[in-house]
Nucleic acid binder design. Structure first.
Lengths: 350, 350
DNA sequence: TTTTAGCACTCATTCTCCCTGAGTGCTAAT
DNA sequence: ATTAGCACTCAGGGAGAATGAGTGCTAAAA
């Protein structure tokens, strides 16, 4: 967008003022900004120009101006100065990165909660883009004569287990046999490749323990399925209410229900290319987000997966602050996953 | 509460009317209830009596009456008729019991979501009262020359695992030794009983692999810790907004933030004795719940643990319907846990 | 040519006042 | 003991009127 220096200054002043106050800003307050030594009348002329360019809007004739989505776009792309995180903020963010967790799903969930708390906006979190997973190895551990543990490990180094109790006894030798059979037949296969026919053949080969094959394999299939299925976590929905644009229920209710809909990934934007993306108002695809802004960042999980965290808020959002915090946090998460996977209790490690 | 038959009839009619309409009910509508062949004037006299007894309230002189918390109490204890679940409802509830899940924590979370959806009120879910857990058995599974899987099983039959990658190589024999050492030294101990001193002694005994002892044991300790720590899950907060009493943000906002506070168990009531409890308005301990009602039910998880699910709503709540649904669902969960623990993918089984 | 002071005009917001109607309590009659 | 009737109360809603922030335009100044 080609604007004179002064217009840029004025636009920035208006937007930053509006971000703070949530009130339409008039020519008078802008005329008072330091470094801008012109009268309010001049500002009014300039504001009329900016409105003609589609960067400002007027709620009604006798009100000040508010930024249009296009105005925010120009602000975000060209005018916004990098927000410098304070020492305190950095410390807080670092502390928040000491996540206590076990499963990937729970890490993601927690990351969302934390970022919501940190930004005071509702947040969503999900993981995207895993490739096709296969089982790399089976282990069966005898516990007692009538129970054993199944341990499976995928090619993405996720390990899952299950304790099974049997109606009848089983010998160590039988288990051994079963184990070998599983490792020769069912490793390296994706979910689709495990056919009923394959199961039948294997069951036959297992002899006495034929029933156990299907038990173990169906567990393995559940694991594969659970790894491919994506869910979204949302957090901090109530924090919406602290922002003046959501003081009216007509505005708040639909957005809140949209956010708390049962987990269905794909309803939130995911950054393409850049690790951070800002979607302002109508730039959002989902109808419910058409007059909100979404700031979303991604981080590297490893194994071809990316984590996504984002916050949702009014278009009047402190983009500088939010992007600074979000990108810092996402970078921290990337680092966390890179150096040794998840914290203690986890079931995967780099 | 000793009331004449007619007073009971009137009180019930008022409460049930108010539950439906959320509007103060006048003498006229009550006079119209079938089976109550008296004039509105008589009703007015009776209503005045009921108000004197503290069972009804009048928002202002020229309005109808609304039930007081005490009135609801009498209703719930003596007047309410059992709500008969329709076939459709039963089917819906049964369907909802086909939970897809893996970890106990996730089951609990999901139960909360489901019950919120089923009742249209915000719900909370938690697990209460575990005994002290110990590790019953360790297994170390060699994966490659520089990595292995730790599998631990607790006395409550929870199995957890972790994949470890080492900076240096390790032989099968060393791992075997380590395994034996762990099983002789660290089984049957609660979290407190695993002292640094014990760790030191064991590390010494491990010889070359001394560093691995602390690695495995600290994983075990994390598992124990995670099993003892209780968290609350809340769901369906946005559904509050669909009820007329929360159409004003002043009422909705504080309750919503209370509900979405970071998980801190103990902030929600847990049924004592009876498997179901109803707390009406000021009967709640928490300030934020003083003018809401909470209906809470518990179900048996096994291993000395009880699951708790509850819903939160206005004191004007359809107690009959809610309690019917909640107790049916809780009973279903009990059954589910009893017969074979969690569905596929889970890490524990009866 | 650009900027500014001044002025008339617009319009959301707030308030005040008044009306309406639902619902009550009381009294006198049944 | 019940009921019909009546005077009274009061929340809610709508119509103006007052307020004031902010604008656009014009004519003068730089």
């Amino acid at each position: 967008m080609d604007l004179t220096e002064r217009k840029k200054k004025i636009l920035r002043a208006i937007i930053e003022n509006y971000i703070q106050t949530a009130e339409p800003v008039g020519s008078k307050v802008i005329a008072a900004t330091p470094g801008l030594n012109v009268s309010s009348a001049t500002i009014r002329n300039e504001m009329a120009d900016l409105e003609a360019l589609g960067l400002l809007e007027q709620p009604h004739t006798s009100a000040g101006r508010i930024p249009s989505p296009g105005g925010y776009r120009v602000y975000v792309n060209e005018l916004m100065e990098d927000y410098r995180l304070s020492v305190q903020e950095t410390r807080k963010l670092n502390e928040a990165l000491h996540l206590k967790m076990r499963e990937l799903d729970q890490v993601i969930d927690q990351a969302g909660r934390v970022i919501s708390q940190l930004t005071q906006y509702p947040a969503f979190a999900l993981a995207a883009g895993t490739s096709r997973v296969t089982i790399q190895r089976f282990d069966l551990l005898m516990v007692s004569s009538d129970s054993f543990i199944i341990v499976v490990m995928t090619d993405t180094n996720v390990v899952r287990n299950r304790l099974v109790r049997l109606p009848s006894d089983l010998s160590e030798a039988q288990l051994q046999l079963l184990n070998t059979l599983l490792n020769t037949t069912f490793t390296g296969l994706t979910l689709d490749e495990i056919t009923p026919e394959l199961m039948r053949v294997a069951s036959h080969a297992a002899g006495e323990a034929y029933g156990l094959i299907s038990l173990v394999v169906s567990f393995a299939m559940d694991v594969l399925e659970s790894l491919e299925q994506r869910t979204v976590h949302t957090a901090g929905i109530a924090s919406l209410l602290s922002h003046p644009e959501y003081r009216s229920l007509d505005r708040a209710a639909p957005l809140m229900s949209y956010l708390s809909e049962e987990e269905d990934a794909g309803r939130f934007p995911v950054p393409q290319g850049d690790p951070m993306e800002i979607l302002i108002g109508p730039e959002n695809v989902a109808d419910a987000l058409k007059d909100t802004s979404v700031v979303v960042a991604s981080y590297d999980i490893g194994d071809g997966m990316r984590g996504v965290i984002g916050v949702v808020g009014p278009t009047r959002m402190d983009y500088a602050k939010i992007t600074a915090r979000l990108s810092y946090f996402a970078a921290g998460l990337s680092r966390l996953f890179e150096q040794g996977g998840l914290p203690p209790g986890d079931d995967r490690e780099k």
